[in-house]
Design a protein around this nucleic acid. Structure first.
Lengths: 193, 193
DNA sequence: GTCTATACCAAGATAGAC
DNA sequence: GTCTATCTTGGTATAGAC
């Protein structure tokens, strides 16, 4: 009765599902994507699809994790966490469906019973730590005012990027990334009046 | 066949539904509130409830409008739009269910086909205008740096309050309102290092 | 080759919007 | 009542460890 772990076939199928889900969601958003549709897109029944992830919420959590990994890989040359965050916000302007998935999911997951609640708690904590560190470095080299508390600014930057991406869905923003940069400029000791 | 509009009874019932919905949602959040439950809470069938609002999305849009009005009434003595925004963020810490409704709904409504899409477009536009005006005034009396573009700062403040409220759901923040104030402090010409 | 966990499917239970 | 969505139950087939 020992656990065997997934077969090679299962591992490949899992990959295929996540890749396909990323595509479909990027194209048509979270609201318009059902497990039924996803299942048929990868040639499985609904039950077959759920076999891999247990629930729709967990499936979408994995999609977000996959996106996180893709972002990390793509931005390995970016200077620091603050730069990475801005680059991600910029890049996300090209994948509105994924932005909708992320935004809706992060809001829904505020419910402690939501399947992805823990995912977001951990994600926010890690992001905040990484940003706070980067902000300290920037304070040391003088590009961010020392009047700002690193932890607080980290929290603000996260909130900002989440909030900007929500507004961007309504096409009320030219470039969310530029706005983030504008704020970072304003936090410089030298940019004062 | 002239249109008569709602009878007094209908108007009263509509009020009752919105008040009750506000209560129920504040208590248990958006995800856990179905039209079925709301209908029985006000002594109507589901069809009866939907008669007043047409769809679940429209009903919740009206709930948000009712909240906006309540906020406006409660904060009529607040100095300016920036102060009002901070006060609302503060107040919302006490009604997590409503925060979840607002956050989830604003994210979902990014889909142009969502029933509340237009509501949010208009809400964001009005809010931004009011904030930009208040920011200009604050620049005139010297409490906000003139290095900042009022429209951009307005957009940033909205994003910030939306984003902070998402994070607040995960109990990762002490006081979202304080963080908003921290940023406003950092935007002062005098608070520099 | 045996064995059993894994990979899947058909049908249906359940619940929500309308 | 109808339609659609998620998820469960109860099963068969197959991969792959031994």
């Amino acid at each position: 009765m020992a656990k065997r772990g997934p077969y090679a076939k299962g591992v490949a199928k899992r990959e295929e599902i996540l890749t396909k889900a990323l595509e479909v969601i990027a194209r048509q958003g979270y609201r318009r994507t059902s497990t039924r549709e996803l299942a048929s897109a990868v040639g499985l029944s609904e039950a077959g699809l759920l076999h891999y992830f247990g629930s729709k919420e967990k499936l979408f959590e994995e999609v977000l994790r996959a996106r996180d990994e893709a972002d990390t890989a793509r931005l390995s040359d970016e200077s620091d966490a603050v730069g990475k965050l801005a680059a991600i916000v910029r890049h996300n302007a090209d994948v509105p469906g994924l932005v909708q998935l992320y935004s809706t999911f992060s809001a829904e997951a505020g419910d402690p019973q939501h399947g992805a609640h823990e995912y977001f708690v951990e994600r926010y904590q890690h992001l905040r730590e990484a940003l706070a560190e980067a902000i300290q470095d920037r304070q040391t080299d003088g590009t961010i005012s020392t009047a700002a508390d690193p932890e607080k600014i980290a929290t603000l930057l996260i909130a900002l990027s989440d909030g900007l991406q929500i507004q961007s869905q309504f096409r009320l923003l030219d470039q969310p990334g530029d706005l983030l940069d504008h704020l970072i400029q304003l936090l410089r000791p030298t940019s004062r009046t």
